[in-house]
Amino acid sequence: MYYFLCVLAVTDLVLSTATLPTILNNFWFNSREIKFSACLTQLYFIHSIALIESGILVAMALDRYVAICHPLRHSTVLNNLLVAKIGLAMMLRGAILVLPYPVLASQWPYCRTNVIPYTHCEHMDVVNLACADIRVSRYYGLFVLFSFYTPTIFGSLTTRFGLNIPQHIYILISNIYLLVPPMINPIIYGVRTEQIRNRLLQLLTLKLP
């Protein structure tokens, strides 16, 4: 569980690092431009880290299942080697599945407006600017999103099918699923873990006069 919590914390940190500077640039310095290569890089990290995070949450659920249903066999079933393999598989899953996103997006010709109504680069918002048949990107994106996070599916479907959703609601939803989980994950999975909570209380007690 501690290994998974560590990986979850790192993924949350990377996700915030990939998006927060752009968002702050937009609001603080009115900087509304990003290079195409940087946009594709941000796009890749956003979607790959989100996939890695979902895999880590599944692995944590498996760890809790074994701990509750087979407590005496927990250390033998989920040994260090298996945990390392699970973590590596989740990271490769996210890194490989999302790789076609920027690869395909970089191949399309772009002749329309270069304005994205977003604070960051989203996959479908970028490829929708292309002057080509982007059905490959659309279908592959839906395949990757199947049984994925609900806010992501909502945002993806509204982009694909042009649902009549107010733009500010659309942007709010996209920012929520990028910024809120990294803020609440340490509370849900860290502070609520008894050993971590007790250690934090010990540290706070030692610092008090």
Results as ranks from 00 to 15, higher is better:
142 L>R: 11
99 L>S: 15
170 Y>S: 12
171 I>Y: 06
88 L>D: 05
181 P>Q: 04
155 G>T: 12
168 H>V: 02
117 P>I: 02
178 L>I: 10
130 A>T: 06
164 N>L: 08
137 S>C: 00
105 A>S: 15
139 Y>C: 00
143 F>A: 15
172 L>F: 14
178 L>P: 03
126 V>K: 04
113 T>L: 05
125 D>N: 14
107 Q>R: 07
100 P>A: 12
162 G>Y: 01
181 P>N: 06
135 R>S: 11
176 I>Y: 08
123 H>N: 09
174 S>F: 03
133 D>V: 01
92 L>H: 01
125 D>L: 15
127 V>E: 06
150 T>I: 14
140 Y>M: 02
112 R>G: 15
94 G>M: 06
124 M>K: 02
174 S>W: 06
177 Y>A: 04
126 V>D: 07
133 D>Q: 10
157 L>V: 14
182 P>H: 10
118 Y>W: 08
108 W>H: 13
113 T>S: 15
138 R>W: 06
125 D>M: 09
121 C>A: 15
129 L>P: 04
120 H>W: 06
177 Y>L: 01
158 T>Q: 02
177 Y>W: 15
155 G>A: 13
150 T>N: 05
146 F>P: 00
175 N>M: 12
177 Y>T: 06
114 N>L: 12
137 S>G: 11
180 V>N: 03
98 V>I: 12
124 M>A: 07
136 V>P: 02
123 H>E: 10
158 T>K: 02
99 L>C: 13
92 L>D: 01
118 Y>T: 11
171 I>T: 13
135 R>M: 03
149 Y>D: 15
180 V>R: 02
171 I>Q: 07
172 L>R: 06
